[in-house]
Design a protein around this nucleic acid. Structure first.
Length: 456
RNA sequence: GGCCCGGUGGCAGAGUGGUGAUGCAGAGGACUGCAAAUCCUUGUACGUCGGUUCGAUUCCGGCCCGGGCCUCCA
């Protein structure tokens, strides 16, 4: 089946044709590690994790590269203000990031390169740009010459005049053209930096992704992904650097960008301070609900994130796990056709989730155990593509609150209640149930006995 | 100012030129000692004004409203 993805460069949904069907190559821009990831940072991780899972389902080999930006002036500033060692700050933050992303069900990428480990490649790329006269050195800086590339601006559809008119920063005096951007800049002694042909300094922001994507995926690869706010300048400049350094016609075949997460209609961002960190959300919500809520809207649409959406996500997962409950932990078999089609149509995750619910309905209606096991296997396989429904259903319902009675105590009370019920002493039975309810435990009397859930 | 997204029922959110996804919430019924869970039934939604059409929520245009980008940003 042909997959379709929306390509930012052409603003169209295009059929996906891998450059090499035997090896699909995907790059996504990763975090700058100076602070906990917020839910806006998590969205591309989760969305493109689904993309990665889908590609792996359809192709024999996929290489997914997601960088970690550990060279950045914000990192330096944070380290300076907290008195922390830069390396320690970036290592800790990177580890927290990986832990948080795993907690919301995302697979690790195949490669997770760090900018600090690729400065040599960045320098040689800058040298290539200088040799081809797409860049110039001035005043300890090396700048990319935007005028040397006629197609500059194609991704963001901005032309040079607009860039200059709209610029929010002062134009540095060493720039030949106000639109030129930095490839290398000098570092003061005692601040982070590397020796280079242009003196002690550090790379500009964009060059790291050009260097690292080239190092692991080559001069041209299949898909480059990231948040929509990276279209300009980051991806525009990556394209300029990579194409001009290698003389290619494209950096990636398809450019995919996720919409941002909003809070009460406004963009969530660190600069506005209106963000939820994944770390904090995990204290109150299952990671799977955090993930589900991120997949509840199509990835290009804005997503308003908050308690309501999280509560809905948890209810929806309750329903899906409830359907899986009678069959326990059956192995995933084959994802359902509607789910595959939904995901293959530009990652239509809300439609795919609807497919999961339809499967759950069918499962709830199934008459025989064999039928139940078959549908459950398919439902789990469909869920696997979305990174959902891989837990033991009982564990899903019984996880959560650490207060209240323990499992043995609950079982004892259920036993006592069932004895009362058998004796038709419903007053006692109801008292026990009410007491458990007050402790956050809900009972369900089924054909095979009484099961319980924690309410949170 | 330039460029780009959106406006769908109580809420979230798909989709389509002509039998009104999906979930949550609501109503009725079945099941149950009573519940819960589940199943069945139930909702005259597509910002606005025009145009095209036999027919538009779906295509085209104007307008209104919301949001984003224009070198911090996922």
């Amino acid at each position: 089946m042909t997959l379709f993805f929306h390509d930012t460069l052409t603003r169209r949904k295009v059929p996906f044709v891998p450059l090499d069907p035997a090896h699909v190559r995907l790059y996504a821009c990763g975090p700058t590690v100076y602070d906990h990831a917020h839910i806006g940072n998590a969205r591309p991780v989760v969305v493109f994790d689904v993309l990665y899972r889908l590609l792996r389902h359809h192709y024999p080999r996929v290489t997914y590269v997601r960088n970690i930006t550990d060279i950045d002036d914000k990192i330096n500033a944070r380290a300076a203000e907290s008195g922390q060692d830069i390396r320690e700050l970036t290592e800790t933050t990177a580890r927290d990031f990986q832990r948080d992303m795993a907690a919301i069900g995302s697979l690790p990428p195949d490669r997770e390169p760090r900018a600090t480990e690729h400065v040599v490649e960045m320098i040689s790329m800058i040298e290539a740009l200088l040799a081809r006269e797409h860049a110039y050195a001035a005043d300890g800086h090396v700048l990319f010459s935007v005028q040397s590339m006629p197609e500059y601006g194609a991704l963001s559809r901005l032309d040079r005049e607009q860039l200059i008119d709209g610029a929010r920063v002062d134009v540095a005096p060493y720039k030949r053209d106000p639109a030129d951007f930095v490839l290398w800049k000098p570092s003061a002694a005692g601040t982070p930096g590397w020796d280079s042909p242009w003196g002690f300094g550090r790379p500009g922001w964009h060059i790291e992704c050009s260097a690292m994507s080239h190092a692991y995926l080559g001069k041209t690869f299949d898909i480059h992904a990231g948040g929509i706010d990276l279209v300009f300048p980051h991806h525009e400049n990556e394209i300029a650097q990579t194409r001009c350094a290698f003389g290619t016609h494209a950096m990636a075949s398809v450019w995919m960008h996720n919409g941002f997460v909003t809070v009460e209609g406004e963009k969530m961002s660190k600069s506005l301070g209106n963000f939820y960190t994944v770390h904090d959300l995990l204290a109150d919500w299952p990671g799977e609900a955090i993930r589900y809520a991120l997949l509840a809207a199509q990835y290009r649409a804005p997503l308003d994130y908050g308690r309501r959406g999280l509560a809905e996500a948890r209810s929806a997962l309750d329903r899906l796990y409830q359907a899986l409950r009678p069959t326990g932990t059956v192995e995933p078999t084959t994802p359902s056709e509607p789910v595959l089609e939904a995901l293959g149509d530009d990652l239509n995750t809300p439609l795919a989730l609807a497919g999961l619910h339809r499967q759950a309905s069918a499962l709830n209606r199934a008459d025989t155990d064999a039928e139940r096991r078959e549908i459950a296997g398919e439902l789990r396989a469909s869920g696997l593509l979305l990174g959902l429904l891989q837990s033991d259903p009982e564990a899903w319902f019984q996880a959560g609150a650490t207060t209240g009675p323990d499992e043995a105590g609950i079982r004892r009370l259920i036993h006592a209640r069932n004895e009362a019920r058998a004796a038709r002493d419903f007053a006692t039975a109801d008292r026990i149930r009410d007491q458990l309810r007050a402790d956050g435990i809900a009972l369900e009397d089924g054909a095979d006995g009484t099961s319980w859930k924690r309410l949170s």
